[in-house]
C-alpha cells in the first residue's frame, strides 16, 4: 500500500513537471516574442526592447522556466500585464466563484446519478429502467452549453424565475449567490449525471448477482435494506473512480458554462486574458486547471486502493 502510494506520488510529481514544461514551452517559447504580442507589431523598437527587459524575456529559456516554477512553489505567479495586480490574487478572487460552482454541480450530479442508477438497476428491464436509460442517452448527447441556453430560455425568458446570468458576489448573501449559480450548476450536472447514472446502474447490477445479496435477503433483510445498505456500498468502488474523474471534467466544463452565464470565474478570466494577450495569466490558469485534473486523479487512485483491498501494489 505505502509502496503503491509512493509510486503514484512520484508519477504525480513527474506528470506535474511534464505538464508545466509543456505549458511553458507552448505559451512562452513558441510565440517568439511575448512583448510584441502584448504591444502590437507596430510599436517602436525601443518600447519593445524596454518591455522585453521588463518581462524578463531577455533571459534564457531555462532561467525563465525555473523562475516560474520557483515562484509557483512559494505562491508567486507573477504580475498580470493587463490588470497590473498579482496573478495569484486575481485567480484567488475568481476561485471564490468557480470552486463553489463545481462543488454544487458535483453534489447535484451525485444525488441525481445515484438515485437514477439504483432505481433503474432495481427495476432492471422494466418501463422505468428503459425510460431513464433512454433519457441518459440524450443527456450524454446534449452539449452542456446548449442545455444551459435551454435552461435560460425556460427559467429566465419564459418563466422569469431566475436571472439569465451574472453574479453579484457572496456579499449579497448566500441565498442570492446560490440562486445565481443554480442554473449553471444544473447545466454542468445534467450531462455528468447521465454518465454517472449509467455507471452506477451497471455497478449495482453487477453486485446484485453476488451470493451475499441472496444471503442477506435470506436472513430476512428487506429489499430496500439490502439495496441501499449492502449493494450500493459494494458498488461504490467503480462509481467513486468515475466521480473523481468527473470532478476534473466539471472544472474544465466551468470554463464553458461561466461564459454562457457571464460569471466572473476562472473560465471567464482565461478568456479575458486571451483577449488581452495576457499570457502570464493564461499560463498560470492553465497550469492550475491541469494540476487540479492530475491531483484529483491521484487522490482517486489512492482512495481506490485504500477502499479495495484486492488492489495490490504489484498489480498497478
Amino acid at each position: 500500500m505505502t509502496v503503491f502510494i509512493l509510486r503514484r506520488f512520484v508519477t504525480l510529481i513527474a506528470t506535474l513537471a511534464g505538464a508545466s514544461l509543456i505549458i511553458f514551452l507552448v505559451l512562452d517559447a513558441l510565440p517568439g516574442n511575448a512583448a510584441e504580442m502584448l504591444m502590437g507589431a507596430d510599436s517602436s523598437p525601443e518600447a519593445l526592447h524596454a518591455m522585453t527587459i521588463k518581462l524578463g524575456l531577455d533571459q534564457p529559456l531555462i532561467v525563465r522556466y525555473l523562475r516560474w516554477i520557483g515562484g509557483l512553489l512559494i505562491g508567486d505567479m507573477g504580475t498580470s500585464y493587463s490588470y497590473g495586480t498579482p496573478v495569484a490574487e486575481l485567480i484567488a478572487e475568481r476561485l471564490v466563484l468557480t470552486i463553489p460552482l463545481a462543488v454544487m454541480a458535483m453534489l447535484l450530479t451525485v444525488v441525481l446519478a445515484l438515485s437514477a442508477g439504483v432505481y433503474t438497476a432495481a427495476n432492471h428491464n422494466k418501463m422505468g429502467d428503459v425510460g431513464v436509460m433512454a433519457l441518459t442517452q440524450f443527456g450524454i448527447a446534449i452539449p452542456n452549453f446548449w442545455f444551459a441556453i435551454l435552461l435560460i430560455l425556460l427559467f429566465s425568458v419564459k418563466l422569469q424565475w431566475l436571472s439569465a446570468g451574472g453574479f453579484a458576489g457572496w456579499d449579497e448573501g448566500i441565498v442570492s449567490g446560490v440562486r445565481s449559480l443554480l442554473l449553471p450548476a444544473i447545466s454542468l450536472a445534467a450531462v455528468q449525471a447521465a454518465i454517472l447514472a449509467r455507471v452506477t446502474r451497471s455497478a449495482v447490477l453487477e453486485v446484485l448477482r453476488d451470493d451475499f445479496v441472496r444471503t442477506a435477503r435470506a436472513k430476512g433483510l428487506t429489499r430496500r435494506q439490502v439495496l441501499w445498505g449492502h449493494v450500493l456500498r459494494n458498488a461504490m468502488i467503480p462509481v467513486m473512480t468515475v466521480m473523481g474523474m468527473q470532478f476534473a471534467n466539471l472544472l474544465a466544463g466551468t470554463i464553458v458554462i461561466e461564459n454562457v452565464f457571464y460569471l466572473p470565474g476562472l473560465g471567464r478570466l482565461i478568456f479575458q486574458s486571451i483577449a488581452n494577450r495576457d499570457l502570464i495569466v493564461v499560463r498560470n490558469c492553465v497550469m492550475l486547471l491541469a494540476a487540479m485534473v492530475v491531483i484529483v486523479n491521484f487522490v482517486v487512485d489512492v482512495l481506490y486502493a485504500a477502499i479495495d483491498p484486492r488492489i495490490k501494489a504489484s498489480e498497478l
Binding site: T11, A14, T15, G18, A19, I22, I23, V26, L27, L30, P31, A248, N249, A252, I255, V256, I270, I274, L279, V282, V286, L289, A290, A291, V293, V294
Partner: peptide, 22 residues
C-alpha cells in the same frame, strides 16, 4: 505510456485554449 499520461492532463478545451492563445 508516460507521454500519454502527460497529454491526459490537458482536456481538449485546455489544449485549444493554449493553442488559441499563441
Amino acid at each position: 505510456m508516460r507521454l500519454g499520461d502527460f497529454t491526459f492532463a490537458f482536456p481538449a478545451l485546455l489544449s485549444a485554449i493554449m493553442l488559441a492563445a499563441v
